[in-house]
Design a protein around this nucleic acid. Sequence first.
DNA 1: TCTGGGGTCCTAGGACCC
DNA 2: TCTGGGGTCCTAGGACCC
Length: 430
Amino acid sequence: MQILIMPKAILQIDGNNFYASCEQMIDPSIKGKALVILSNNDGCIIARSSEARKIGIPMGQPYFKLKNKLTQLNINVRSSNYELYGDISNRLMQLLRKNCEGLEIYSIDEAFGTIKRPKGKSLYKWGKDLRALVYQNIGIPISIGIGETKVLSKISNHLAKQMQNNSGIFDIGIVENKDRYLNKVKVDKVWGIGKRMSIWLRNRGITNALELRNMPSNQIKEKYGVVGLRIQNELKGNLCIPIKDRTSDRKEICVSRSFSYPIDSLEELNQVIIKYVLIASAKLRKYNQLSSAITVFTNTNTHSKNFYKGEATGKIDIPTSDSRIILKKSLELTKKIFKPYRKLKKAGVILQKLQSNQYKQKLLFNEQVIQKEFYQERLNYIIDEINKKNGRDTINWGSSIIEKEWNPLRKKLSSIKTTDIDNIPIIYAN
DNA sequence: TCTGGGGTCCTAGGACCC
DNA sequence: TCTGGGGTCCTAGGACCC
């Protein structure tokens, strides 16, 4: 991991209503209209266009509860199309990287950047130009918050979204009356303050960012240790959470899904675990990393009475990214967590203890083993390449043939116009 | 009938070592 | 009566994030 040199200004950039904006970008017929995006299995609402937000459609609600209302109000609905969002995200991040000094990609729709601040000057104009450039090239509206630390730039972005005339840009690093702005931000909107902490703070009369910044730090430290202290320090303008280059230093890789219908046999559970292991180990190879521990887990419906959760972890002696070795281990673990007569609703695998493959232990054994390892690596590589070109399931291990029906439902999926050649829009010229 | 998926970081406590 | 002190490593679980 590379920690970048302490900068003068931190930027926090995010795509507005990112999933909804992506959908609206590829389908002009829903531009400017109310739209919601559903999670896997079309379960919950996980994103809304600003129009849907204005109407008062809540976030995180189960779709089945709101289905009628959405139809009545004529609100557009889409299943989540992660291939599309991932592709747009890559383009966005590439453009941002070109225009910032340092960049930390924080999530699919969000990044922290660094830029030198011209002495005592606001970066508002600079941000406005960047925003225009992104809209022109990617077609997605963004917001930019600027401040001295990550926590302050997050707050700045939050405020930017509320200011009608600011075009989604705000620079809290240079404003005259900073405290007045901090006073406006509710304490639970501060980055790093979640449900538990905000209840604790409110019980002590701390309701906004300004009060949090000014409260005695020993109280925070006693209750929330360095984590709490860091947030307070960042509010004071002292950079404690560095900008990181996280392109290759993931700590774990998790692949998990809910099934479209419950599973109750070991064979079926094995099948889905195999599928998830293959996705996870391909990711591992993509990031040039090796894993030396794996966890598999499964559970029944979280809302049911006899909730069951099984979890097992196993070590892999020599760190690897070889699908076959990881598969073998994961199936041993699957046997441990399977319970008959339980209607399993979800399962997943987590690859842990990741390390870079630059430091791979060389085997000390004979030539034959090295040869075998070499061919194994080639085999994995070739499978990845073929799947990258032709789609994830083009070629696969014999054991992973899977019944389609377990795969999550996406009834209202948009087509993938930017990543799939068959879906490229056709324009007819007269 | 129906309730997402993928991460990070920190701490406490146990096992073990000298 | 009295029961060292310091350290590391690992794991489970909490809290938070998008």
